[in-house]
Design a protein around this nucleic acid. Sequence first.
DNA 1: AATGAATGAGGCTTCATTCAT
DNA 2: TATGAATGAAGCCTCATTCAT
Lengths: 230, 230, 230, 230
Amino acid sequence: MPKNPKSRGGRTAGGPRATARTAAKPAAARPAAAAPTGTLPSERRDHLVSLSAELFAEKGFRATTVREIADAAGILSGSLYHHFSSKESIADEILSKFLNEVLTDYRAALASGGTPREVLETIARTGFSSLERHRAAIMMLQNDWNYFREQPRFDYLQKTLAEVERIWIGELKRGVKDGTFRADLDAKLTYRLFRDTIWVAVRWYRPGGRLSTKQLADQFSRILFEGVIA
Amino acid sequence: MPKNPKSRGGRTAGGPRATARTAAKPAAARPAAAAPTGTLPSERRDHLVSLSAELFAEKGFRATTVREIADAAGILSGSLYHHFSSKESIADEILSKFLNEVLTDYRAALASGGTPREVLETIARTGFSSLERHRAAIMMLQNDWNYFREQPRFDYLQKTLAEVERIWIGELKRGVKDGTFRADLDAKLTYRLFRDTIWVAVRWYRPGGRLSTKQLADQFSRILFEGVIA
Amino acid sequence: MPKNPKSRGGRTAGGPRATARTAAKPAAARPAAAAPTGTLPSERRDHLVSLSAELFAEKGFRATTVREIADAAGILSGSLYHHFSSKESIADEILSKFLNEVLTDYRAALASGGTPREVLETIARTGFSSLERHRAAIMMLQNDWNYFREQPRFDYLQKTLAEVERIWIGELKRGVKDGTFRADLDAKLTYRLFRDTIWVAVRWYRPGGRLSTKQLADQFSRILFEGVIA
Amino acid sequence: MPKNPKSRGGRTAGGPRATARTAAKPAAARPAAAAPTGTLPSERRDHLVSLSAELFAEKGFRATTVREIADAAGILSGSLYHHFSSKESIADEILSKFLNEVLTDYRAALASGGTPREVLETIARTGFSSLERHRAAIMMLQNDWNYFREQPRFDYLQKTLAEVERIWIGELKRGVKDGTFRADLDAKLTYRLFRDTIWVAVRWYRPGGRLSTKQLADQFSRILFEGVIA
DNA sequence: AATGAATGAGGCTTCATTCAT
DNA sequence: TATGAATGAAGCCTCATTCAT
């Protein structure tokens, strides 16, 4: 007899919180992802999140109406609220899944003990490879950042991004100190260049297109690390 | 969409049509002009456009309501329609001004007859320098691209962007052929990397901040052309 | 309103029909009984009614959602419909039980053959004492009267209240005639004053508080019958 | 040039705040009442508040839909938001007007320096006389108390009611001490009896009915102060 | 040029109820 | 008896736009 049989929307506090996950990089196929606290990951629900993600990626979060999501699922818009407490909670689910993974990936790369260039290249590569699995999240972070930024519920976005920045800048500075990178490198600027370069690619990257994410990563890494000059 | 699309005010159909513009930037940099009294009609109008641009840059085009614009101008939202036929027409004004300038700059760079690296560096630099003057336009192009893309009225955006791409790719290929650039460069990918790198900076670049657009351009150009490796 | 009004469970049409009730109060005071397992069907049902009553008393009938009731019972809202045909039918059960008792009490008082003051004081005292057992019903009658009043299903409310009024006014007039009460008493007004005084107390009266219903009845009876003047 | 031409809804903080009003009792005809801060009391707006008040009085605040209000006004429901920022803000306007007046009346009665009985009788009489002008507010306070109580916006309701209680209890105790009232009077209980008696009358009192509020006040005052016994 | 009032379409959300399993 | 999923009607509110004055 469930005391709270309908924890509509599931995750309440949202965001990447020390999800006890082993160091082993489990980045790939995790079909339904570590079920957020208190959420019984029903297949129906997961399906709805998927559909929503696709729409959010295509049109943006704000520009997507709950009616469109419901239409895509073949139900009435009100019925969505049987599964989620709000449109935001769907976004939350999509975004926190991504950010959790980002954090895990970054920390694993750091923990690997490589050189700055190795660490950053690993990070960059996992970044590119997430373009496929987390297209919607990355898209939303870019298109609707203004919206999410202002909602307390999504504070974790900024917190996670701050840690991401810390890691990048740390490695960049380490690389400058040990002579790997140019001495005149502005760490913050370079971080932004890399981060944006990777994530903005979500705008035009299409899975199954001319280039795989691996090829993408190769080309971009080479340019960013070694420049375009022959 | 206006039922009775009046063409009150200036440009109706919008878009970069050979607007004979000399190199001197005409109407630009009038940052936030205090509420004008007894101003010329066109000055009032320009003021409104510039207020709108600021809001669009800060919150996005769709996310900005006409009431917010009107509030900023100290009038009622309905009164805006004495100056513009629609919210879109304000966007149009902002976007087409920018795209006209882009085209002019690109063509001028091409016409200069420099080496591929010189041409592209010039283009990149003018791109960075436009972050200040055209912050709103660049922001809108990124945040609300999905919206503008689908409206026939804004077809010119895609046309202009296509020409921009043609120029970049042309120069990149020329540079590969003459040995300036790496032989393994994917021209399209590289073009996107450069373009996005420049324009996405609008997200965090703030005029009057730590770095001038010139310093920005220096750092970025160096990384993109020569890489981060020492 | 149910499309197919089933009469699942007990009373269908509701209302105080000579339910032969002895003086002993039968089903009362079962404050909040821990979730019963292996209970008889009717006990389960009674439990649900009593949970509902508590919620109705606290928040009002309309303001209480079936989900809140279901949550309190540890089931899903849809499951309630195995016990009751509608939310109204729960209200019906609560209200008719109360009104039946009121009628019984009033008639018993009348039948006792006392003086007008004795009859009315008895009635007033049973009124106060019902504040505990019928808190929900009295609350609903006040907060949601507008709602119940308009539903044919609850016509019995008005009928019962009309009889209550008849009895009060009858005794008041009898008391005026025999010189017990002031000659200038407006019977209808006085009836309303007494009735409201008693029932409105449900708003602030809390069982187990500073005063028992008996003390309440003593104070109020004294004021109403004898005034506050020393 | 108004900086904030549309302070939709006007009163922001709501409630009876030391509205600089002279001691002179100006209770009666104050057509548009001390214009809440920043509200230009347009006639249209006042009319809409009136219409709303009538509906709120008849059906309750929650039970009245914005559509009903709009229908009554012959406009679309969305158009209401040109005048008010929310349904609550209409309630706020109605309630705070009433509570402001209550406070003024109570303080004036206190300031008159009469005996406890005189003060309380004055208060009671102004209470009855407000049944006409403030029917909606009193009704809402009773029917939708549960709703308003929980909204921070309406905190002032509880504050005002607390002061009302303080005044009543003060006078009652003063009257007990000086021998005017019975020694065994429970001040709090008596206060409630009086308060409820007056305000609950709004349920059945109809202006223009058999009795004027003055007659009502006479009858009730006599009963409450002197009892019903001859 | 503006105001003040309104429109009409659409957005998110709630809720009593139904029903197959 | 429950669950899980859905319905359908309705509720409050937003917003670009129109228009008489």
